[in-house]
Simulated assay, not measured.
Amino acid sequence: MAPTRTLLEHALTTGVTALDTAFNYDRFTGHRVLARTAGELLDRFEVSTKVGYFPDGHILAPARLRAAVEQAVADLGRPPDTVFLHNPEREPSGLAAACEGLAACREAGLCRAWGVATWNPAPLLAVAFTVDAKPDVVMVRAGLAVRGEALDAAERLTVKLGAGDRWGMAPFAGNPNDPVWSKVDASVFLEPGQSASRIQAGLAAAFALPAVSRIAVGTSSPQHLAELAAAVRYTASSGVVAEYRELLRAGAGR
């Protein structure tokens, strides 16, 4: 769902200055809708987007990816700051060529940075050695809903690809409004002396599962956005996170 003008204005007042979208969102109209809704506000945000899905399927052919990036520039009225390969694990054999294609987009000024956004990084580990172009960032699932092996794979992929940064996404399994998150108490992950809401504690924990510098979270509520934005003041305990990771590995039979 595209953000409203009111939500974008509220985001700026709460210190949120980054937006994440994709070429295929809103039935391939998301970029145009965002530009129309945001108007002059769009230049106050850092915009990341993803390419790889097309009306005729998931395609990593470099020419198709470049055409999608060029269309994103036209629809947004400006180059996106970061462009990601969208779920390349659907076609691992195309990873190397796709990375070269997005690196060329960056060199051509069609974006400032590029990266790999993967829901399931494990299939990419076997082909990461074929990639010569080094992504600026890898985006992976983060948070308490992510299984231990996926956390390990995300960290390994970041290293194998030589990415300069790692971002997180979907910390609440894609639905932060699900009532279950009002029942899950993630405060045990916080450093002592911190008092946060359950949603805020869950987001703070997600920043450490795996370690990421930013997290993409979807919301349509200004109140919920303010609560999430305030979560960046809280810090997860590295000791508790390490113990939790070991429990996950033990549960997986490692």
Score class of each variant (00 low, 15 high):
residue 85 L to S: 06
residue 238 S to E: 08
residue 141 R to S: 04
residue 45 F to T: 02
residue 47 V to G: 10
residue 221 S to T: 02
residue 39 G to H: 04
residue 75 D to W: 14
residue 220 S to E: 14
residue 46 E to F: 13
residue 48 S to A: 15
residue 88 P to L: 13
residue 170 A to R: 08
residue 244 Y to I: 04
residue 175 N to H: 06
residue 245 R to Y: 07
residue 83 V to P: 13
residue 109 G to Q: 10
residue 55 P to W: 10
residue 57 G to R: 07
residue 167 W to N: 03
residue 213 S to C: 08
residue 205 A to D: 01
residue 1 M to Y: 03
residue 202 G to H: 08
residue 92 P to Q: 13
residue 156 R to T: 14
residue 135 P to S: 04
residue 152 D to I: 09
residue 71 Q to K: 14
residue 196 A to F: 01
residue 59 I to H: 07
residue 12 L to D: 02
residue 69 V to G: 10
residue 63 A to Q: 14
residue 144 L to A: 09
residue 196 A to P: 02
residue 10 H to D: 04
residue 136 D to K: 10
residue 106 R to G: 07
residue 253 G to W: 00
residue 129 F to A: 14
residue 244 Y to E: 04
residue 211 A to N: 06
residue 231 A to V: 00
residue 60 L to N: 14
residue 218 G to S: 14
residue 30 G to T: 11
residue 5 R to E: 03
residue 136 D to P: 09
residue 105 C to S: 12
residue 176 P to L: 12
residue 8 L to K: 03
residue 73 V to D: 06
residue 176 P to C: 05
residue 206 A to G: 01
residue 193 G to F: 05
residue 70 E to V: 14
residue 56 D to R: 12
residue 253 G to E: 02
residue 246 E to D: 05
residue 184 V to R: 01
residue 82 T to C: 12
residue 58 H to A: 11
residue 222 P to D: 03
residue 49 T to V: 08
residue 230 A to P: 02
residue 99 C to M: 14
residue 179 P to M: 05
residue 92 P to A: 15
residue 185 D to Q: 04
residue 156 R to Q: 13
residue 41 L to I: 04
residue 7 L to Q: 00
residue 224 H to E: 10
residue 66 R to E: 15
residue 248 L to Q: 04
residue 74 A to P: 10
residue 138 V to Y: 10
residue 25 Y to V: 09
residue 137 V to G: 02
residue 90 R to V: 15
residue 140 V to T: 13
residue 80 P to N: 08
residue 139 M to S: 15
residue 206 A to I: 00
residue 24 N to P: 06
residue 150 A to F: 06
residue 185 D to G: 05
residue 70 E to D: 10
residue 153 A to S: 07
residue 151 L to V: 15
residue 70 E to S: 11
residue 232 V to H: 01
residue 54 F to I: 07
residue 196 A to N: 03
residue 189 F to K: 01
residue 58 H to S: 11
residue 143 G to A: 11
residue 130 T to Q: 14
residue 209 L to R: 08
residue 112 R to K: 10
residue 189 F to L: 06
residue 85 L to D: 09
residue 148 G to L: 02
residue 200 Q to V: 02
residue 151 L to T: 07
residue 212 V to W: 03
residue 178 D to W: 09
residue 35 A to H: 06
residue 61 A to V: 15
residue 24 N to C: 13
residue 222 P to I: 03
residue 140 V to I: 13
residue 240 V to S: 00
residue 248 L to K: 01
residue 221 S to I: 00
residue 89 E to W: 05
residue 31 H to K: 13
residue 147 R to W: 06
residue 240 V to T: 08
residue 148 G to H: 03
residue 218 G to W: 04
residue 156 R to F: 06
residue 201 A to S: 02
residue 62 P to C: 12
residue 188 V to G: 05
residue 91 E to H: 14
residue 69 V to E: 09
residue 68 A to M: 07
residue 93 S to V: 15
residue 111 C to H: 08
residue 191 E to I: 04
residue 84 F to N: 14
